[in-house]
Amino acid sequence: MMKTLFKMFLTFARIGGFTFGGGYAMLPMLQREVVEKYKWATNDELLDYYAIGQCTPGVIAVNTATFIGYKLKGIPGAIFATLGVVTPSMIIIGLIAAFISNFRDLEVVQWAFSGVRAAVVALILSAVIKIGKKSIVDIFTALIFVVVAVLSFVTDLSPVIFVVTAAVCGLIIKISKEKKAKEDEK
């Protein structure tokens, strides 16, 4: 038990320490570590956690870590995974706040970050393609995907609105399909 908890802490610390650009940018790392390497969750589950993590209060990265930790090892798992994901931030921000008051103005930092941003674009894109193949299964899901991606990019609407609307759409589409199938049987 202790060993798994510790492994979860370290894995999530590694993910937190190398996530640049907020919770969504975590997806490629989660996919590699949590889905492919340790098989703690499936791609579908990851997406579910992301979507629900939008609608529950707090930071998405934390919510996702809590979900996975809880699924694996209950409440202790939730706590260890969550502490793991926030620990690097606390250390790095603490050090910067304490010692490097001009961190943002350092040219070398800006160069490094321009490079990292370019890599993050490629990493997220490849994660979207990989996971999208499994979740975008028909014309309806393709439509939901495109509408959400575009609207969320060009407007300031809260992600909660998209998630809730899409869930309702999912229900309506599936239920009406079911009805139609039954009528066809008759």
Partner: peptide
């Protein structure tokens, strides 16, 4: 059923974050 729609939205949100970066 709800997750069927929700997963597509979830990946849409990630795609939009990708556009932002």
């Amino acid at each position: 059923y709800a997750f069927y729609g929700l997963r597509a939205a979830s990946i849409g949100l990630v795609a939009s974050a990708c556009l932002g970066v």
